[in-house]
Amino acid sequence: MTELAASTGAAPRRTVLQRIGWLVRAAWRAEVGIWQSLYRWILRRPRVPRGASGFTYHSPVLTILVIFIVLSAVEIPIVDLIVHDWPWVRIPLLALGIWGVTWMIGLLLSYLTRPHAVGPDGIRARLGADVDVNLTWDAVATVEKSRDVLEKAPKIRDETHGRTLALRMQNETNVLVTLEKPVTTRLGDDTVEVDAVRLWVDDLDGFMSAVRTHIP
């Protein structure tokens, strides 16, 4: 069951082959996103539209990601020392360890190189390389501070203001964007319509100030 199905009460069944295909496509998108993030960071090319201001959202997960990166990096020479006399084991484990560290760094960089953006064309709400929602000003009704904390909540659920997409960081959001009209976006293999978007912003006051330059 997809997060979308879980949030709407629908329960479309996938065959085994469909599930495998979904997992393969999700893994491929994640892998491509990681390497694109490394590329953008090296070339200093964050995805911020021309004339817009970028706003980070990685602070809630920064500590845990750094810890995982450090532990993964320390683990490589330790494992290499243990299996040093068995090249047929050592080489695959070494490659896997290096890939794992690179992947974790790329995950962090996906947040850094794809910040939320506020500009003349509207708001871009993002979650790493996975989600990029374009909210044009003509579709935006209100933008407000709204702290929301929910554990194990689906990405999309029905709230009083309609179907809401929540881009949570450590289960939290602190901004609510309600829409004048539904906006269509992609979540994995699905195309969905949402009536509101919740997101987390590190610099909440700066974000709201940028929004007020476009919405009085």
Rank of each mutant, 00 (worst) to 15 (best):
I82V: 15
R147E: 05
I69Y: 09
D190R: 15
G21F: 05
L17G: 11
M104N: 00
A117N: 02
V183W: 01
E180V: 01
S72R: 06
F55V: 03
E180R: 15
Y39K: 12
D189L: 14
S7H: 07
R44N: 13
T8F: 09
R40L: 10
T178Y: 01
L127I: 09
D132P: 06
Q18K: 06
E31S: 13
D148K: 02
E172P: 00
T15Q: 04
V140S: 00
G100N: 06
V70G: 13
S37F: 07
L17E: 08
I20D: 01
D189T: 09
G106R: 02
I69N: 09
T191L: 12
I105N: 00
A73F: 11
R124V: 10
L204M: 04
W22R: 07
A141P: 00
Y39L: 13
W22N: 11
Y111I: 01
V79Y: 11
I78R: 15
H84D: 13
E3P: 00
G97L: 12
L109D: 02
L165Y: 10
T213F: 09
S59T: 10
H84I: 13
R45D: 13
D132G: 05
R147Y: 05
H84K: 13
D138A: 01
W86G: 00
A141C: 02
H58G: 07
V32N: 11
L81I: 11
L167R: 03
P12D: 10
V194P: 14
I91D: 11
A166W: 02
G162H: 03
P154C: 15
V133T: 01
P60C: 07
V149F: 09
R114K: 13
A210D: 05
A153F: 08
G97S: 08
V131D: 06
G33E: 12
D132W: 10
L62R: 12
F55Q: 00
P115K: 02
E144M: 03
A117Y: 01
D205L: 03
L135A: 01
A153C: 11
W35D: 02
N134L: 15
S53N: 03
G97F: 14
L199S: 04
R114F: 08
Y111G: 02
R13E: 14
K155Q: 14
T191Q: 13
P182E: 08
E172M: 10
I67T: 11
